[in-house]
Design a protein around this nucleic acid. Structure first.
Lengths: 140, 140
DNA sequence: GTAAGTACGCACCTTTTGGTAAGTACTATT
DNA sequence: AATAGTACTTACCAAAAGGTGCGTACTTAC
């Protein structure tokens, strides 16, 4: 019921420099969020957490990603300033990708989430099964 | 070069109970991750961080979401055990949504990411502008 | 000389996601 | 008596995401 959307931080600190608001339809923060949380964006950030990788290394590491999607998401993350692209002018081409400082920060947050899901996977899968069975019973 | 993918945790702890691996194509953790990081999933979790909400409250809070998408993502999050749905058997219908314990944990991680992006939005937008200008110069 | 690897871009097509509008069943308000 | 609100679902359509295969330009290994 006060001016700020969430009670956690007081507006004096929060609104100093124009802060984004993802809950607002037109806010550009939604776009950034999508780059970071997109299907492949998450996995690329997560992969880059353990250091510099070449294009082909990422392709092998992230099973199932296509070249098109890999280059597309790398470009989006580069544009946002989360990933640094270093091209060595040699033949055959040699390009390296690594996280920027900002990228490291987001990647660690994303990695946190990913790790938690990986660890709690069994639990979650059980929940899903229970939910599905419950629904099936009601439909019969 | 050891058995585990990431060096952070030793395999003895990590692999005790079958842990997921998002980097593997067939791993069900990818599906869960998508529920959580989907366009609307993120925003629903984030919104529920400050307490129980009714359907129509969420709809108003998350600007731009359609009823269809809201109910769809709520159901996915409920199935995963992140959101609890409490239906009061009255007319007109009264349904409340809140985070489960597990849901609270993921939502806090998601919220962390969202807050960071909101706070650093200006910076990121500058990066994007620089990147676009750079690209435009090369194309001309 | 043929194949493979490097890091992509492009065109075409399919799949998934998401929006719109309508309907439901009932009540409370005007 | 008509309208709005509650929490949805369903059918239909548009838009976005994503996959496949091909091409590039050049080198190294077989």
């Amino acid at each position: 019921m006060n001016g700020t959307a969430k009670g956690e931080l007081s507006s004096s600190l929060t609104e100093k420099l124009s802060r984004g608001n993802v809950l607002a339809k037109e806010c550009p923060s939604r776009g950034i969020l999508q780059d970071v949380t997109s299907r492949w964006g998450v996995l690329v950030l997560f992969s880059l957490l353990d250091g510099t990788h070449r294009f082909s290394e990422l392709r092998k590491k992230i099973t199932g990603i296509s070249e098109k999607m890999l280059s597309q998401t790398l470009q989006a993350l580069e544009a946002d300033g989360f990933v640094l692209r270093i091209a060595h002018p040699v033949i055959p081409p040699h390009v390296e990708y690594r996280l920027t400082d900002q990228g490291g920060t987001v990647a660690r947050k994303v990695g946190d989430l990913v790790n938690w899901i990986e660890l709690n996977l069994e639990d979650i899968l059980h929940s899903q099964k229970r939910f599905d069975e419950c629904k099936a019973r009601k439909e019969s």
